[in-house]
Simulated scan of single mutants.
Amino acid sequence: MAIKYALYDNQMTSDPDDHMAQVQHDQTLTLDNIIETMIGRGSTITKAEALSVLEEFFDAITEAIKNGQAINTELINISVSLKGVFTDSNDRYDSNRHHAKINVQAGTRLKKVLSELSFTKTEASKPVPTLLNFKDVASDSSNDTLTAGGVGQLNGSRLKIDPADNDQGVFFIASNGTETKSPTTIRNKPSELIFMVPAGLASGNYKLEVRAKLGGKGIRKGQLLDELVVN
């Protein structure tokens, strides 16, 4: 399947006619989506087994990084570097002046994919909030449970809202179309929102939607792919 791209004005050059390409992803997959694809191909492993193995894999990777080891796999290569200025050869690491950075590069298997990609041009779409993962703090679950009156954590991109604007915010849309807005935003960043889940939500399924003005333009809406359930 061809990858879609659209052209937008290039603000990095002085040429008013210059444009730059931006890939238009049809969908953003979570770990659960990847596992569903794995077991959907006829694999003999269960979803629980796949999750368990991947959790062990993630733990092994993070432990290696903490131990000062670099990672080299067919999929990705991971290493750590230090940023910041050291005053002379006798200077030492100071967390107030220096910071660590995780470097991730494509491995040989991902690099090979580049030669197999095909592209098709499409019309430029307006940017919208992208909701990647919702964590229900009370139940410590992701993209599943919704606890009325609890705290929710949402990660993604273009999520920042203006709490003073009644049209912007985090909305919970019930199966019957009823909309309830989160009453309080605790953390308000482009990549993360932490907010209160309305206490009055009735039992049932809900769509989670963020409404925000991007670049001073009109209200743009983005929804989480998974439905959330209030028990």
Results as ranks from 00 to 15, higher is better:
Q168S: 02
D136N: 14
T178I: 10
L159Q: 01
N188D: 04
F172M: 01
K121P: 08
K189C: 00
S115N: 08
N143V: 07
L132C: 05
V151M: 13
L154H: 01
P127D: 10
Q105M: 11
P183Q: 10
N188L: 03
S142F: 09
A138H: 06
Q168R: 02
L131K: 00
K160N: 10
S125I: 10
T120W: 10
A174W: 08
A148E: 01
A148L: 08
G149L: 04
S115M: 02
N188P: 13
G107Y: 08
A138T: 11
T184Y: 14
L132P: 13
G149T: 07
P127T: 06
L117Q: 04
L117V: 06
R158P: 05
R187S: 06
N133K: 07
E123Y: 15
E116Y: 06
V170S: 02
V113H: 09
F119D: 05
P129A: 02
A164L: 14
E116L: 11
P163S: 06
K160I: 05
D165C: 14
Q153I: 07
E116K: 11
I186V: 11
L154F: 00
T120V: 15
A106G: 04
G169R: 04
G177Y: 07
Q105H: 12
I161H: 02
L154K: 00
P183W: 13
I173G: 09
K160D: 01
K181Y: 03
T178G: 12
A164T: 15
L159D: 01
A106Q: 06
F119C: 04
Q168M: 00
P183C: 13
L110A: 08
D165K: 15
P183Y: 12
T108P: 15
S157L: 07
D167F: 04
L117R: 08
P163R: 04
K181P: 02
V113M: 14
A164P: 10
T120H: 15
N143I: 05
K112H: 13
K121M: 04
E179G: 11
K181W: 04
K135Q: 03
I194P: 00
L117T: 04
K121Y: 05
V128A: 11
A148C: 10
K189H: 03
S182N: 08
N133C: 13
